[in-house]
Design a protein around this nucleic acid. Structure first.
Lengths: 119, 119
DNA sequence: TCACCATACCTCGGACCTCGATGTATTACT
DNA sequence: AGTAATACATCGAGGTCCGAGGTATGGTGA
């Protein structure tokens, strides 16, 4: 019907929507237990059936940024003689994560107001 | 407790979350009726009680981008001898907007899986 | 009348984000 | 020995968001 143009627009808007959720999801994962980058990526795949997975470049940038903001901290571990960089949520990270829940429900309400009822 | 660092982190993460929703909300507004930029901004203010309002710079960039993707079209109108640039959703825009509803409910489900129940 | 504010449009630079490509290593299998 | 999966990281291109600044018109009140 609209061909390529539609796919391009959808890709762009989906990307915008998803991008905002990456940090939140990472913090949610790390609240359960410390994880290393590659494992976080696999957790995204599992959670979303491969539909919501940041690229590797994005993921490592994101982790660096979260660390800069002191929402996570990192340490090197070794399993099977192999070095892995683990990330752990900080107390500040947990606090921020909790506040972001309000933000998400605020946004949900905005969409309800717009008539975007979820089924 | 955490002082400035917490405010900075919250600001950043809130911004990321909100940013992804701007295009969707604009398309939702325009689905009702054509509007000009300034009115769109006021509609954001009203919808969110001033909490979810893109800056002017952002808004005009966004409208330009939506037009580039042929999701909206623009035309100049005049009211009271004053020129206004109106934006109108295109058929492609309506189509894309509908598909994005699935995306949003997909993301909502992801957060439910993570235990982020809405109250 | 004239200052001032709200309305209305726009551009620009800086900071930041996402992606895909690329690079480096190690481990596991075949 | 070769390949795939694991694991980390960097880089440049393109794009987004914001704040600051600019231009201009219309209405209000002193």
């Amino acid at each position: 019907m609209f061909g390529d143009a539609k796919e391009k627009a959808l890709k762009k808007l989906r990307k915008e929507l998803r991008a905002g959720t990456y940090s939140l999801i990472i913090l949610s994962f790390l609240k359960e237990k410390p994880m290393h980058g590659y494992a976080i990526r696999r957790a995204f795949e599992e959670l979303s059936e491969g539909k919501l997975v940041p690229s590797e470049g994005t993921l490592y940038d994101l982790l660096k940024s979260l660390e800069k903001y002191k929402l996570v901290s990192s340490f090197w571990g070794e399993i099977g003689g192999r070095a892995r960089k683990y990330y752990k949520i900080t107390p500040l990270g947990e606090d921020v994560l909790n506040e972001l829940k309000n933000e998400l429900s605020f946004i949900t309400k905005i969409f309800e107001k717009l008539g975007w009822e979820n089924e």
